[in-house]
Design a protein around this nucleic acid. Structure first.
Lengths: 224, 224
DNA sequence: GGGGTTAATATTGTTAACAATAATTTTATA
DNA sequence: TATAAAATTATTGTTAACAATATTAACCCC
């Protein structure tokens, strides 16, 4: 198992709270679990810390990050700024083919909702946002957006009981594509903004209490 | 000399082109130069790569990044989006005290220009932008802006002969503060946008040719 | 039993030697 | 002399042992 694989697995476990905020990420334990050397785990942890999914305390190791409410709000605000710029740019140059491509993603997403495959619905929802960024063509902003999206589930789950009903709403995604089709970037970004607000407004003051998890929780690939 | 010190020094050398794009950063050479272990240099290089100031090729080491013209343009575009959001937010809540604080920075900057201390003028110009971000209070965006600012000199110098005449213009900084004082975030961000365009428009197609530098160039702390 | 000190263990951090790969030089041969 | 193969050197990548620190457990005294 490669370094990237290990990173992805731990990242995913952090993102969907199988490894809750505050969990200590012990090097030897993880190394043994994944069947890799400690050095590999160390590199992975460095990268996790860099992406703010984890926090490092000198001589005390790294733990899963416990983002504050402020960080959550800042993240949403930054996301709004970036997605606005993306949509305004994209509205001036989007092609019919791209519109169709977006609608295809939304159709699939809709299917998942109807068949209650929320796991895959989330993936498609994320894909919708990142594809928008990709189409706009600004790689710097795409990277920033990906970074934000990576961090969002952690900040949400830290201050929310459950995210399952706080997903992106399909009809808003539809409305964004409609606005883009009409070349109205202003409107698209306005919808996006309130779209994000739906999630943002649910953020509560108090973080959830955490119980110490068994590391083997990583094995469970299904969040619930 | 600590890891952070070494990072800062190499970073600064990359930023002001004493270590031009494409320069190979050899581990033992750097370790010997700074009087640290190779492991320390390795960590520093990892961080440099992460911030996109350097590029890593497996088994071939890391070299100073050679950003493309597109990356330069993307960076400016992203910066525009972020600073716009910062200014719009700040305009609604800036205090008189903060206005004075900003003006003080600009006065100092003006002094430096008049005494031809362009080295320090750059520092103050950067400070102006980062203080704006800090005042707006969004830490995520502040981090992104810092990241962009860190990368900007490299992309500019790669596609420009010299940056010394392409600095931020003081009167535009003044106008931004004026707009903020009037609570007009819209106008402030518009000025900021054209402010950035002045620099952006000078970006050329062809990257400069590079000659292999002596590593001891790092010793020269003064760019010229 | 509680508070605090010391010892034992666990965990992170560092290092130097080794392995693997790439770059360079040398040598052989046409 | 030019080319290609081989040998040498330089450079990056990995590992396991060691050191330093923090955490836990044991112990003692009151």
């Amino acid at each position: 198992m490669s370094e990237d694989d290990v990173l992805r697995m731990i990242e995913q476990a952090v993102i969907d709270h199988r490894l809750p905020p505050g969990t200590k990420l012990k090097e030897v334990e993880l190394a043994h679990f994944f069947g890799v050397k400690r050095g590999t785990i160390r590199k992975v942890l460095t990268r996790l810390v860099y992406s703010r999914l984890a926090v490092q305390q000198p001589n005390k190791g790294v733990t899963v990050a416990k983002p504050s409410v402020k960080e959550a709000l800042d993240l949403f605000s930054a996301r709004r700024a970036i997605e606005r710029s993306i949509l305004e740019s994209l509205a001036t140059k989007i092609t019919i083919k791209q519109i169709k491509q977006l609608r295809k993603i939304l159709d699939e997403e809709q299917c998942c909702y109807q068949s209650s495959d929320s796991q895959r619905a989330i993936v498609l929802s994320v894909k919708f946002h990142t594809v928008l960024a990709f189409m706009a063509g600004n790689e710097v902003m795409t990277e920033y957006l990906k970074d934000i999206i990576r961090r969002t589930p952690l900040v949400i789950l830290t201050h929310l009981g459950d995210m399952s009903q706080n997903l992106c709403r399909n009809q808003e995604h539809d409305a964004i594509v409609d606005a883009l089709e009409n070349g109205d970037g202003e409107k698209a970004s306005q919808i996006m903004s309130q779209h994000l607000s739906h999630i943002e407004n649910c953020i509560q003051e108090e973080p959830k209490s955490i119980k110490k998890p068994n590391l083997a929780a990583l094995l469970l690939k299904v969040p619930q």
